[in-house]
Design a binder for these strands. Structure first.
Lengths: 154, 154
DNA sequence: CCTCATGCAACTTATGGTATTACAAGAAGC
DNA sequence: GCTTCTTGTAATACCATAAGTTGCATGAGG
């Protein structure tokens, strides 16, 4: 089954934006995650609605962060990209009439719900600032690349 | 994203089989989960390979349970249906060169792995016998239907 | 007024779960 | 034997949706 990677991609983008002072265009961002500028705009639209980022048209336009990185968590970003379903398996039906299926569903749903909740809690534990710090640590460990210059995205 | 419901369907089928002494045909089983007999055979093939069920051709043929319900867990059945991926979201790429993406992936993957492990553990905690007992409890509570006669599957 | 950029709708593509069709083969009954 | 019931399996079609693409409108600078 195809996995939704919007959360992964958007976080990647946001962390790069955190290293830049000027607006970054969809074109630039799209290259970072090997996709199309339209896909970037579509995805970022959700973040804009929630005030996490800001977009500007025309010359010198593009995307800028507009939130406190210490306040926004990965869970917030997950919601911003539309809260895609987390689990790839599920019950065959909701509210079945068959008592046997009801029993199966009850047990399975319980497990599913717990796993989802646990995952969401994990996402809620990590702020963008923490992620950013982690990035810097990795960059230092790798020899200290300054301000996102010289990395694989050029 | 479409959710894989094989586990849910197969468990439903197995519990019905547990109430029957004679072999049950794919035709009958397929009606229980509103699908096609071929789908049943295809799915049950995995269980047969692991010895959980047995199939017989010809007159009076069909499927029978061939395992100790107190020994087989939902996790075992999950494996038997091919261990379909549990999560519907994931990282955009594995082993990215970009340090930023590495940092994002590391944190996300950690959360994903934990959620998967937790879900699998839950599935491993419940045996088919426990599920069956749960069914019987529900049937009793509902007025005592004997031997799966008179339920919604006719 | 030309260029650069986002905004957005419509459409196409790719993927994978599910369903269907068709046919081979084996087992029981007549 | 032959017919019927059943599984076994390959090939195919169906369908939902994540992702990619195209086209055009709109607004901001220069």
């Amino acid at each position: 089954m195809r996995r939704d990677s919007r959360l992964s991609g958007v976080l990647h983008i946001l962390l790069h934006m955190a290293e830049r002072d000027e607006p970054v265009t969809s074109e630039e961002l799209s290259k970072m995650i090997d996709t199309n500028p339209v896909v970037v705009r579509r995805t970022m639209a959700g973040l804009r609605e929630l005030g996490y980022v800001h977009s500007e048209k025309g010359h010198g336009g593009g995307w800028t962060l507009s939130c406190d990185l210490t306040k926004v968590t990965m869970k917030d970003i997950y919601s911003a990209v539309g809260s895609p379903s987390l689990l790839a398996i599920g019950n065959r039906t909701d509210a079945p009439k068959c008592l046997v299926e009801q029993a199966v569903n009850a047990v399975l749903q319980n497990a599913f719900d717990e796993a989802e909740e646990m995952l969401l809690n994990r996402l809620g534990d990590v702020t963008l600032a923490m992620l950013s710090a982690d990035c810097h640590a990795r960059i230092e460990a790798r020899g200290g690349v300054k301000k996102a210059k010289g990395n694989v995205h050029g």
